[in-house]
């Protein structure tokens, strides 16, 4: 199976959201003249968790883009058949021309990453920078990551690379096509 993927380094992500802003700019998600906090679409977000009690605590952060699922719930939910998983790349795409604005995909997505454009009556989301990756470029988030915490490539090769470096893929977080990893110990 062909699958492009992002591998997110939990040791390096600092939760700075640089990728969020760069993605928004690149994808034209911000109407700079009218945008208001809390109402700007986004294709990825930062999550974090804390372990422990003061003063022995640890916090880790990671980014949550579309997971480009193996058997995507959004695809099954869409009655208009507007969502497809591309055979060449494994990218899950919403075909805007087919989207009828039913929003079932938004309800179905377990990761909460699908956005809705009320003005156009269309769902939209991360397409792993479809145009860029077909042109030899990384997705924007991987290119701009402040700490080089996001790697891009074919999933099998990323896994091989991480294994060779002794990294641990966090299986619970990597259930779909994106990989989350850390240094063991």
């Amino acid at each position: 199976m062909k699958q492009l993927s992002l591998a997110i380094d939990l040791d390096r992500c600092i939760g700075c959201k640089t990728c969020v802003a760069a993605c928004r700019n690149a994808k034209g998600l911000v109407d700079h003249a009218s945008a208001l906090p809390g109402a700007i679409p986004y294709y990825l977000r930062v999550e974090s968790d804390r372990q422990g009690i003061y003063p022995d605590i640890s916090i880790r952060s990671w980014v949550m883009p579309c997971q480009h699922c193996k058997n995507a719930a959004c695809i099954k939910a869409c009655k208009a058949e507007a969502i497809v998983k591309d055979e060449q790349t494994g990218i899950v795409r919403i075909l805007a021309e087919k989207c009828t604005g039913g929003r079932a995909c938004i309800e179905a997505c377990p990761y909460g990453v699908i956005q809705f454009d009320a003005a156009r009556n269309k769902a939209h989301k991360c397409d792993l920078c479809w145009d860029r990756v077909h042109n030899g470029q990384k997705p924007v988030c991987a290119e701009v990551c402040l700490t080089d915490a996001i790697r891009f490539g074919e999933k099998e090769l990323l896994k091989m690379e991480l294994e060779a470096e002794g990294k641990e893929i966090v299986k619970k977080m990597s259930a779909q096509s994106m990989l989350y990893f850390r240094t063991p110990g």
């Binding site: 700079h32 945008a35 700007i40």
Partner: peptide
């Protein structure tokens, strides 16, 4: 700056 005060993209 709306992006930097946005809860997803910044700190509100």
């Amino acid at each position: 700056n709306p992006q930097l005060r946005d809860p997803i993209g910044g700190f509100r």
